[in-house]
């Protein structure tokens, strides 16, 4: 039988800066969550699993990637448990510890977005969408939507960039560990 990690609760609490012990599973968060239908565990279940030390299950879950951070849960939580920050911390831990993301496409979205930021300091939406499609192999999904955006002049054809790119790169080191 798999051993649970009893230090996991503290690890997550330290990382996100919030205490997760106050949850009494009223499920206000899960009821109001806009993305709950494509989650494999409800947000409050994730909290319980963290309390039980079910580290592997939590870090491999789809739920932590699906959360968009809309703050509906924390706005409704009677105990003000900051679930969006908790999810941020869980994703960060999952990446640090080399856990395969439960939603590879969403990770690809974040990764490609941040590559754009690192490259120019700003996001060039057209290239970002292309790169996301290359990374996920979803070449033909949503082409109509993209063309519509271009047709209506909603995507800029040329990128702009930050002048002091050195500063951007030096910040990027914190993200991808070039320095570490």
């Amino acid at each position: 039988m798999k051993k649970n990690d009893n230090g996991f609760l503290n690890q997550v609490e330290d990382k996100c800066g919030h205490l997760l012990g106050g949850c009494f599973h009223c499920m206000a968060c899960s009821s109001g969550c806009p993305a709950v239908e494509i989650m494999d565990y409800y947000p409050n279940q994730i909290i319980r699993m963290i309390q039980f030390g079910m580290k592997e299950e939590v870090l491999k879950s789809k739920t932590i990637w699906v959360c968009v951070g809309c703050y509906a849960c924390v706005a409704q939580c009677p105990n003000r448990i900051h679930i969006p920050h908790m999810m941020d911390a869980l994703r960060e831990i999952a990446l640090e510890e080399g856990v395969e993301p439960g939603e590879p496409d969403i990770w690809a979205f974040h990764r490609e977005f941040l590559k754009q930021v690192d490259k120019r300091g700003r996001v060039y939406e057209l290239e970002f969408m292309m790169r996301y499609k290359l990374a996920t192999g979803s070449y033909f999904n949503d082409v109509g939507a993209g063309l519509k955006m271009i047709k209506h002049g909603r995507l800029e054809l040329l990128p702009t960039k930050v002048r002091k790119l050195k500063e951007i790169r030096s910040m990027g080191d914190y993200f991808d560990g070039r320095k570490r």
Partner: peptide, 25 residues
């Protein structure tokens, strides 16, 4: 002048320090 991306959802979703730096600049 010379503003940069605030990091948006992707930065805080995967690395809180990076999000802080991008916005902080």
């Amino acid at each position: 002048k010379d503003w940069n991306c605030c990091g948006s959802s992707p930065a805080h979703s995967v690395n809180q320090d990076y999000a802080l730096l991008l916005a902080g600049r």
